[in-house]
């Protein structure tokens, strides 16, 4: 009996309808918090943080580069786990989250690579270097894009989900390589600014806006993930009666 109740809870969590209805009221809050954090962090970092002693003002790119890279990597784990949950428990919502995470992850990896390139020019003298960190990050972008492209290779939606979940799981090997690349190889890329195990190698005046930006990116990620997944739910479940009722209600209100 107890076990049974636990499972209904688990399955309700995996129900697209439950997710769609539950997340509705979160959206304005999440959007407001993300916008406030991102705008505050960006203005603070760009105009008020002190310039770096060696890199001057070009270091301000860090306020976009580091949060985007952070979320690109964390998002990969989220995507791979969502894929695994989908494979094991056959939860549809899980695959939808996986697909949304792939799109957002690809965009964030692109931001990380682009901001890295324009930071590289004034700092290293080159936009692109085939350095371990940058190359493994490029592989991450290809993994994300591969997840999106692979879906189109299948006519059957279920096989597409399974195949991309497996690709996502195999690709997780790359994530620790990216993290460790600056320690394992002699790289041009500077070592991590923030480590969980030690104090940040940054002055508090520079670090505070970075922390705000990272928090802002986390909220933004959650917001984008929910928005993409809600759109996907409507498309996938358009024949379900609850979706039809919802649309009919909206029409009636117009």
């Amino acid at each position: 009996m107890k076990l049974n109740r636990q499972w209904t809870w688990f399955h309700r969590l995996g129900s697209p309808r439950w997710f769609y209805q539950k997340t509705q009221c979160w959206l304005p809050w999440l959007g407001a918090i993300a916008a406030i954090l991102l705008v505050t962090g960006l203005v603070w970092g760009l105009a008020f943080a002190p310039p770096d002693a060696r890199q001057g003002n070009s270091f301000r790119i860090i306020y976009l580069h580091v949060p985007a890279s952070f979320l690109a990597l964390a998002g990969y784990y989220l995507m791979a786990i969502a894929g695994a949950v989908g494979l094991i428990w056959r939860i549809k919502l899980s695959f939808m989250l996986m697909k949304s995470a792939a799109t957002i992850g690809a965009a964030l990896t692109f931001i990380a690579l682009f901001t890295g390139a324009v930071w590289g020019k004034p700092t290293w003298g080159a936009y692109w270097v085939w350095d371990a960190r940058i190359t493994s990050m490029l592989i991450l972008l290809f993994l994300y894009l591969g997840m999106l492209v692979l879906r189109h290779a299948f006519t059957n939606h279920e096989s597409a989900n399974k195949a991309s979940a497996i690709l996502g799981l195999v690709g997780t090997v790359n994530v620790p390589i990216i993290y460790k690349s600056v320690d394992w190889w002699q790289t041009l890329h500077q070592p991590a600014t923030i480590k969980l195990t030690s104090a940040p190698s940054m002055h508090p005046d520079m670090f505070a806006p970075l922390l705000v930006m990272i928090l802002g990116f986390y909220c933004f990620y959650a917001l984008a993930l929910i928005l993409f997944t809600r759109a996907e739910i409507l498309e996938r479940e358009r024949r379900a009666s609850w979706v039809r009722e919802l649309v009919a209600e909206k029409q009636g209100g117009l």
Binding site: S58, L64, A107, F110, I111, F114, V118, P122, L227, F228
Partner: peptide
């Protein structure tokens, strides 16, 4: 460098909200 990084990032982020 700084402003082009900001411009491209902000455009991508806005796109991630508008598209869904």
């Amino acid at each position: 460098y700084v402003w082009s990084a900001v411009f491209v990032s902000v455009c991508v982020l806005i796109g991630l909200i508008i598209r869904p």
